[in-house]
Simulated scan of single mutants.
Amino acid sequence: MTAPAVTVRPHASVAAAMRLMAGHGVKRLFVVDEKGRLIGIVSRGDLLKVFLRSDADIAGEVREDILDHSLWAATSDVQAAAEQGVVTLTGTMERRSDAQLAVRMTERVNGVVDVIDHVTWRVNDVPVWKGR
């Protein structure tokens, strides 16, 4: 055991928990509430299960959770396919900013290794940065 115990909060991301484990060289983390009370234990195996998802599950989550429900833009012309965790988005959206948002949200789906963006748009509503 490591002293003091390495802990994580229940709403920490999988990536944050994995970084804690790697940084402290531990195989398990104690999950504690806001008062520091133990509410569970998470192992490396538990965290890895998140990434061991079928391509069909990943593509389905992208379609249902992101394209169909999370975006306020029309996405019926956008398709999502996954192969070995790499999601390819194809199709057309009205605005470039919505297409970029779809890609960013897809990158955050558990099990997604990379996103290939083949989404085109009709209107480029992304301002040009004129930094110094």
Rank of each mutant, 00 (worst) to 15 (best):
L101M: 11
D65A: 08
V14Y: 10
V62E: 04
E83C: 11
P4N: 12
L101D: 03
E34G: 03
D57R: 09
V87P: 00
A5T: 15
D114C: 05
A73L: 09
G85L: 06
L47Y: 03
R104Y: 08
R19M: 12
H69S: 14
A82T: 07
W121S: 08
G45Y: 07
E94L: 12
W72I: 10
A22D: 14
N110D: 11
I39K: 05
D57P: 04
A22T: 14
A82M: 06
E61K: 01
T90N: 10
G85C: 08
Q79A: 12
I58L: 01
V50A: 13
G45A: 08
A81W: 00
P10H: 10
R63A: 05
A102L: 05
L29Q: 06
V128N: 09
G111T: 04
V113S: 06
P127G: 04
D57A: 15
K27S: 13
A56R: 13
A12W: 02
S97G: 06
R19S: 13
P127N: 07
D77Q: 14
V42T: 10
L20M: 10
Q84L: 11
D33W: 02
V119W: 01
E107R: 09
L48M: 15
V50C: 13
V62T: 04
D117G: 05
V128M: 12
N110A: 14
R63W: 10
R104P: 00
G131D: 12
T88H: 05
A80N: 06
V26F: 02
M105Q: 11
L71I: 06
A81Y: 00
R9F: 10
R53I: 00
Q84E: 15
D46I: 04
A59F: 03
S43L: 09
A3P: 02
V42P: 03
R96I: 03
A102F: 04
V31S: 07
T106E: 01
Q100D: 13
H11G: 03
D55V: 02
D68Q: 12
V14L: 07
L20D: 01
V42A: 11
V86C: 09
D125T: 04
T75S: 13
L89A: 03
V115D: 02
T92E: 15
S70R: 14
R132E: 13
L71P: 01
A12E: 12
I116G: 02
T120R: 14
V113W: 03
I58R: 00
I66D: 00
